[in-house]
Design a protein around this nucleic acid. Structure first.
Lengths: 198, 198, 198, 198
DNA sequence: GATGAATGAGTCTTCATTCAT
DNA sequence: CATGAATGAAGACTCATTCAT
């Protein structure tokens, strides 16, 4: 055979990396980072165990890559919304999309939250996620500011906590019993009252 | 000589059990259940590894004992408040005490929350904690009902999520940077507005 | 109280020793030496774990004591028979009593045989049992000699092996399904034919 | 370079598996299953402890594999004999080969018998061995039947017990002192007298 | 690029034995 | 004589990582 071009190599690399990452993501989301062994990931990806170390320097490194992937995914979800000029609509859409995320893409949260609550997995991953989620509060603050609400920073903290608290209750505490949809509606109506109360 | 009396033995047992439980509690709170080895607990408690199994049948059993201890502690914290006849005061006090809990007894939450977010630690512990935290929402609902708020169940869910969300942000996400005190004050004032809006 | 006389002390010692030994015997017979812990024996005997070491220097030492007890018990069983002057009757009675032993006192064999098959438990116990069981062959040899059988030593070996083989099949291999009684009858009739064939 | 072919891997696996199995077989035969630790097997095989679990799922699994190996080996030993049309010759050959087995392949019996006398090692292994040894009695019964002996089933039980009893005496009770060869000859002559007595 | 055999430190747990009282 | 708390070595098993091919 003719020697593969570097382009072909790159394509192979990209496909393998993706296969591995997908396998790891699924596994981490359903069983939790700790309870997934490197062997299981390899088996699920259909490659040899050793190959994983060709693409990632460690199990932790794989987690880091996944977190980055998730963050990008969320960004692309949010992408359009951040352009929205009307602050009230923007806020509403942000809340809706948050609920959509942990309703339809629960693996985002079920992967991320356990990691954030556990020291000792990876300081790197922890910091990255903290910064990332922290930005949401800033975005909320900006919106509240634009709306002329009294204490935008405080209000942003509250909304952020509320959304994450709902996620937590929904995904880990009450699970199937939790009335997510009603809760979402209720939050939206509350928000409106806060805004128009101004 | 004559053997120790059973009272003496009981005292010895109580002291050892406590030493071990304290060591475990500290370790679990700072490093997380999964990342603490039985050896580490023994070392921290200053006893031989084998002794732990004289008091607890397994590592999981130690966790269970700790969770029960925490829950009792919270109960005694809450004890007086639940008697409070005035619903508004009761609500305010409950919120204040919640904040006090995760401000002054962060080991409560730092031990509990990682466990709740991780399947596979102990179904038993998980269920016990879920039920326990679930009761808070019921208490809130009762209070809101007494206050004549429009949708007491929904309002209770929101308050519960808000408090847990704040705990989460404070203890795991923003940590030192988080303005807990201000957030607390803000929540209290919000609550008032909800009540008197009625 | 008046100080106990040495006689009283001795009585106490004897009772305690017996309690422990009985507990150990039962436990060893049903669960096997290896699978019985010293704690279990103490619990079953209703005494403190430490007390065992007041009477026996080790778990192995307890086993040795039990084996001696069993051997004495067998001797007293056999006692009368060895006086029997008629060799044919003596042989028959010995066989009958052997079957009675492993039918009605299976704990003898279920304790002893696993120990004999396992190197590493106790060379001491092993040797003692070997010598003890070896004597039976000698007794058989004496009887066959008195009966004028052709090769008494060989015949004795065969009979000994046959009896132990039946015990083994009955107690460990076929268990409930094994027709001990028929086998016993068959052996007795065989023996007669060997003798009268002479 | 290119990865090893699957054939190469298979060869490596076969060699390692064999190394481990041999080490385990030796160790089990001389010291007994219970008294051999996984570490010891690994050391004897000259591999890391963890590797054992690459080939066997547990210590018990290793035992099972060995027992199966032994049984197959015995089958191949027996193979030709079972074809033998003349029942008398067949019986004689079976007895001869039994003696050959526990004379030349004592590890067969020294591994198997302790396991059979001890509950609690592995119900699976126990049952398999019981069934296997039970079949010998059936074979003997068939032969005796063909020979027209009076009570073939009973006679088969006796012969089985005799052979196992001799094995037991030879391998565990009298050991070096035991005159196996003479005993074998004696049994063969006995058998003949039983047959021709018919 | 890809394979999977091999490593070994680490995990939880058990238990015979000691010893202060 | 009697107690049972305490010890610590040893047990089976797991798993992230390495490396020769």
């Amino acid at each position: 055979m003719s020697p593969r071009t570097s382009k072909q190599f790159e394509a192979i690399r990209a496909r393998s990396r993706e296969k591995i990452l997908n396998a790891a993501m699924e596994a981490f989301a359903t069983k939790g980072y700790q309870h997934v062994s490197v062997s299981q990931i390899a088996a699920r990806a259909g490659v040899a165990k050793g190959l994983l170390y060709n693409y990632f320097s460690s199990k932790e490194d794989m987690l880091l890559a996944i977190v980055e992937l998730i963050m990008q995914d969320i960004f692309s979800y949010m992408g359009g919304i951040l352009q929205e000029p009307d602050p009230e609509k923007k806020l509403e859409q942000l809340i809706r999309i948050s609920f959509q995320l942990f309703r339809e893409k629960r693996e985002f949260y079920t992967t991320i939250m356990p990691i954030l609550t556990q020291r000792g997995i990876s300081e790197k991953v922890h910091n990255q996620l903290s910064r990332f989620l922290g930005e949401f509060v800033s975005v909320f603050e900006g919106i509240y500011g634009a709306l002329g609400v009294a204490n935008p920073r405080m209000e942003a903290y509250l909304l952020g906590a509320l959304i994450d608290g709902v996620a937590w209750h929904y995904l880990f505490l009450f699970e199937a019993d939790y009335p997510v949809d009603e809760v979402e509606a209720h939050i939206l109506s509350h928000i409106k009252s806060i805004i128009h109360h101004t």
